[in-house]
Design a binder for these strands. Sequence first.
DNA 1: TTGAATTTTCAAAATATTCTGAAAGTTTTC
DNA 2: GAAAACTTTCAGAATATTTTGAAAATTCAA
Lengths: 167, 167
Amino acid sequence: MELQEAKDRFIHTWGTLATQWGINRTMSQIHALLLLSPKSLNADEIMEELQISRGNVNMNLRDLMSWGLIYKQLLPGERKEYFQAEKDIWKAARQIGRERRRRELSPILETMEDIKKGVSDNSPESAEFLKVVNDIYAVAGFADNTLDLVTKSEESWLTSTFVKLFK
Amino acid sequence: MELQEAKDRFIHTWGTLATQWGINRTMSQIHALLLLSPKSLNADEIMEELQISRGNVNMNLRDLMSWGLIYKQLLPGERKEYFQAEKDIWKAARQIGRERRRRELSPILETMEDIKKGVSDNSPESAEFLKVVNDIYAVAGFADNTLDLVTKSEESWLTSTFVKLFK
DNA sequence: TTGAATTTTCAAAATATTCTGAAAGTTTTC
DNA sequence: GAAAACTTTCAGAATATTTTGAAAATTCAA
């Protein structure tokens, strides 16, 4: 079937792309599967569909929830837990931005502050070192602010105002 | 020595942080070492400093050059090749943005276009699938544009105009 | 309660990535 | 043009990450 083929290709490619930017392949594939699924899926269905183990599914569903990209759903009359992806891609993207900010930029800012505190003397060598540390701090801070700005904004506002203004 | 300790900590931490966002630890450490080094270094010096093999140093220097984060320098009267980091951190950051755009966003855009072409029928199921693909395309395109905008700009312009305007 | 259904955990296995070091390749000098 | 100085390559080793699957924990219905 043609459509199913395209969906499979989407899921597979999404997994491959993800590894290129440091994200677990299976996690991305589960996310892609849920994005494309009209109804929410349970662990068994995901295992079956992607041919992976129960533990793997469980672990990655957990991860996806911590990224805020999927939700757990309890269906009435069902014991099993069902999962659903956030279908608003713009919302999902903002969520990814928010998490990357927290996971990647915050640690840089904290570490640079810490290191600055550790250098007490004021020799020329120390000054030179501190310049690098301060510059990195400033760049990370700028990126953090910019991402914050963008992720806090609504899609409509962004596309209509932001892009036009700077194009 | 106090300063040396701080520098070592910087190099070590930089390597650890890098792994968290999908970048090779050694590559980051070499970059950090060159960032902190007032003079350019050759392969032997880097091997010695970071206690790693020649092959490893060579491979990662190559990688760093492809990212545009370091330069090869040929010193007169010296046979060995020396390496120097781009010391303008803002310039380096723009370089990273440019490369990530090329390496992470471009493939998404290409893949989504490809997949769209592959779906020919116009059933409701296909329409639903294409909506997801199109949305992802739009988000990736937006991110691509925004990064392009930011990386093309000069630091001074950014901090003075951009941030104030949106704060 | 009990026990069946389901989820979670985690040690070991499988896989993927990174690193080493020596051999091959290249460049430069004499 | 040969040898010394240096750089690159790459197969195998080391390390790190991911995955499995079965046992343990939890939840829920009766």
